[in-house]
């Protein structure tokens, strides 16, 4: 399901128009992105939580050329699935 299909589905289920559903979906993902960009944490009960993890620099290799490259330190978002969703995905919900 794409972002556009999610918007259509929410509009249908909530009986709101597409423009309104678009505002809701974009606000949700913008809010979460901004919090993570500021180094914050997001926790959606029943769905999961997002946090930013810092990774140290390491020596890697370019898979095409085999040449060694230094990969700088970086931060990346990490998602942990919530209990309810984990159970539902495994048919235990």
């Amino acid at each position: 399901m794409t972002r556009g299909e999610l918007i259509e589905r929410v509009a249908r289920e909530c009986q709101i128009n597409l423009k309104q559903a678009e505002i809701v979906v974009s606000t949700i993902f913008r809010a979460m992105s901004e919090t993570l960009a500021d180094g914050g944490r997001v926790e959606i009960r029943g769905f999961g939580s997002f946090e930013v993890r810092a990774y140290a620099a390491y020596k890697g290799r370019n898979p095409k050329t085999g040449r060694e490259v230094m990969v700088g330190p970086k931060k990346a978002p990490f998602f942990k699935t919530g209990k309810e969703l984990r159970e539902r995905i495994n048919g235990e919900g």
Partner: peptide, 21 residues
């Protein structure tokens, strides 16, 4: 409903693609 729609879709094994996220 947004999160419920996402959960129901994942429950069927279908993936969710949110461009930009």
């Amino acid at each position: 409903m947004v999160f419920e729609s996402i959960k129901e879709t994942l429950e069927t094994g279908e993936k969710i693609k949110i461009s930009g996220f």
